[in-house]
Amino acid sequence: MRNRPNIPGFIAITVLVFFYLPIFYLVMQSFNEARFGGPWRGFSLQWYALLFDRPEVWRAVRNTLIVALSSTAISTVLGTLAAWCLHHYRSRLQQSHYVLVYAPLVFPDLLMGISLLLLFINLGYPLGLGTVILAHITFCISYVAFVVLGRLQDFDYNLIEASQDLGAGWATIIYRVLLPVMGPGILAGALLALTLSIDDFIITFFVSGPTSATLPLYVFGMMKQGSPTIINALCTLFMLATFSIVIWGQRYLYRR
């Protein structure tokens, strides 16, 4: 018994190394003085300085923020409403609604990107920030709906009857009971939508126009031009931002 190999511990460490070694390497390289990465030549912030001199970077950041925030806001509202309908009405229509909302979760992104592109072209809708936002809303709704639906399953409908019983009308019930109780669930859905939207490459690739490149598209472009060290710096900042959102979200969600 004493010398039993610690297999679960070994697996955990392997998985962690597998996940975080590339990221660690990237972060390290972003501070490396060497021009093309490789061996360590000393600490330097020059790539960060270079990054801040490039206006296209800031345009991409701005585009990403506009797309992520607006698609998150809209898909959170629509996804929450969809979840409410799915939870409360069990008609034929809602059964097909369920399948249709579920489908985008398993659809290949490629298929979704191409079909959206075809739709926009056929409608004569000019590609740009507008089409990117629409596309992001489309896939975010499904994720929000499923996160919120999961939380709704635990929601005690008696709370609504109890509020009515105590004299509350619908506006008060939504504002004082439904949103506060469902808040963490809706927020979790919104955070998921936010990170998915910031992250998305394939669908955005198909539906974006010449001036509407988001960060992932911009990074991809820079790769082709071959400036890996700037990309390292950009990705490190990008990662920092994503982690902050997630950590803040977790804290907020588990505080209650």
């Binding site: 019983d165 105590l166 109780v181």
Partner: peptide, 20 residues
């Protein structure tokens, strides 16, 4: 008359207290 307009109150079986 809807429930919020009645001067009647209910004690629910599972309490239905507002958790927040």
């Amino acid at each position: 008359l809807p429930p919020n307009k009645r001067t009647i109150n209910t004690v629910f079986q599972n309490y239905a207290l507002f958790p927040h």
